[in-house]
Nucleic acid binder design. Structure first.
Length: 124
DNA sequence: GTTCTTACA
DNA sequence: TGTAAGAA
């Protein structure tokens, strides 16, 4: 069986991962994966879906986590990824501000002091 | 022939 | 989880 347009049918995925199509449908029913559908309601799986399914199998078979637990863990993973993005952006913004502040301070130091001129006033 | 849904052991 | 029936 070969991949078409980057998508796999449920039969292809089942063969690749050695699981029953029913199991894959069950994962979807539990909200763990969301393969897109064709106009004819046929499930189409991406490479990312396959990676997710591998992760699900690893959690359930090797660690004994049930599907509800895997669902929570996958949600947490996504949240952590989003938090990493936020932290990264904050770091960039903070570094930029610090740089600007330092540039401002150094420019003040470099300014030449104003010349003081002594003026003599002669009286009668 | 493949996939979908639903159901049952 | 595995298997099966009936429809699409």
């Amino acid at each position: 069986m070969k991949r078409k347009n980057g998508y796999y049918t449920i039969g292809m995925v089942a063969e690749i991962l050695n699981v029953h199509p029913h199991t894959l449908r069950e994962y979807e029913r539990e909200g763990l994966i969301k393969p897109i559908r064709t106009a004819g309601n046929i499930r189409l799986y991406t490479d990312k879906d396959i990676e997710d399914i591998k992760f699900i199998r690893e959690m359930t078979q090797e660690l004994g986590v049930n599907l509800a637990g895997v669902d929570i863990i996958m949600r947490m993973k996504k949240q952590i990824e989003q938090l990493h993005e936020i932290i990264e952006n904050l770091e960039k913004a903070l570094r930029k501000r610090i740089e600007e502040e330092q540039a401002r301070k150094s420019s003040l130091v470099k300014k030449e002091p104003a010349h003081v001129v002594e003026i003599k006033i002669e009286r009668e």
